[in-house]
């Protein structure tokens, strides 16, 4: 049986080197613009950076995937099409796309380029996945974080392309690529600008002894002194429904599906993905190394090592998320 492929994030060349050195099988990254869903200030790769990244990774037999996973702007397809062209030219091993128009372009213009379907396309069922395969020759689908492991197993029994699932990191409780919460509060969206709850619209302000986070002027959370903080994303905020403040959508927490490795293997999942292109290289080195150790042990049939990743996760808490039915 083939071992899992470990797919790791990189927000810049140093992070890519950290991921490669820590044992990634593939690294995914984006260009420095709105063509990818982590379009954050100071992050991502120039064309020159990508060339260097591919050279570094390929020399160590590690693959590079380029995420071009936002939805191209009407009347301005150029930046997205050029991103696909440049990824192909610079010998990326795959591009990760979400928009059907862009998939059609890539399939037509670069028939040899390996296409992966981004989680942002939110393809959650057999029928949708087969359509992406038949229409564009998509070879792998990154599954949206709405399915339980048994559902993934049934899905894999019915499709003949590879599946990749998130196992670690930040977690959207909403179906990805189908969420306008950020643009509702700020005018900037994951689908269009590649940003969710953009830093430009985030403010932290002390309120008494507490720390308030606001997004577009809306109060998203209040952290008491000594309480762990989270990202200022709307879906991880505290709100009032009724009279009690509560994490209505999701607590500040991180996905960690390491305990589910046997089930994911039985479900015939091909690749495991770590979230966090926006995180520092220290996070990437630590998490990738931890997962590398776990996957190596798992492949040899050994007990999984105990790994303490609490220090790097949001809210200091971890969850198996949608993979278990109780999450719903």
């Amino acid at each position: 049986m083939e071992p899992f492929e470990l797919i790791c994030p990189a927000g810049n060349p140093a992070a890519l080197r950290a991921a490669v050195d820590a044992g990634a099988d593939a690294v995914y990254l984006g260009f420095r613009d709105e063509t990818n869903a982590r379009n954050f200030p100071g992050l991502n790769f120039s064309r020159e950076d990508l060339a260097g990244a591919v050279a570094y990774a390929h020399a160590r037999r590690v693959q590079v995937f380029v995420a071009i996973n936002t939805y191209p702007q009407a009347g301005n397809l150029g930046p997205w099409e050029r991103a696909v062209d440049d990824a192909a030219r610079l010998k990326a091993d795959a591009v990760i796309l979400a928009d059907v128009g862009l998939l059609a372009y890539a399939a037509r213009r670069h028939p040899d380029l390996r296409l992966h379907l981004s989680v942002q396309a939110s393809a959650a069922n057999v029928e949708a996945i087969r359509l992406y395969r038949d229409a564009f020759g998509v070879r792998r689908v990154v599954l949206p974080r709405v399915l339980t492991v048994p559902e993934i197993a049934r899905l894999n029994a019915e499709i003949d392309i590879e599946t990749e699932v998130f196992v670690f990191g930040g977690m959207c409780p909403m179906a990805e690529g189908r969420c306008s919460l950020s643009s509702y509060a700020t005018g900037l969206s994951p689908n269009r600008q590649g940003v969710c709850s953009p830093a430009s619209h985030v403010r932290y302000e002390p309120r008494g002894t507490a720390l308030a986070s606001t997004l577009g002027g809306f109060t998203i959370n209040l952290f008491e002194e000594g309480e762990q903080a989270g990202y200022p994303t709307l879906c991880k905020g505290r709100f009032l429904s009724g009279d009690r403040p509560a994490y209505l959508f999701e607590e500040p927490t991180s996905l960690n599906a390491m305990e589910l490795l046997p089930e994911l293997k039985a479900a015939k999942v091909r690749a495991l993905k770590i979230e966090g292109r926006q995180r520092g290289k220290a996070y990437i080195a630590a998490v990738v190394a931890a997962y590398r150790r776990a996957l190596d042990a798992f492949a040899k049939g050994q007990a999984l090592p105990t790994l303490n990743l609490d220090a790097v996760v949001e809210g200091g808490a971890q969850t198996t998320g949608a993979y278990k039915r109780a999450w719903r």
Partner: peptide, 26 residues
């Protein structure tokens, strides 16, 4: 959903607002 779209192949249909139509290529 794209799944429903797949099942509608060959018959006239409408595309709803929950399928991501952001540009002229799509």
């Amino acid at each position: 959903d794209m799944g429903a779209l797949a099942l509608l192949a060959g018959q006239p249909h409408a595309v709803g607002p929950f399928i991501n139509t952001y540009n002229e290529a799509t």
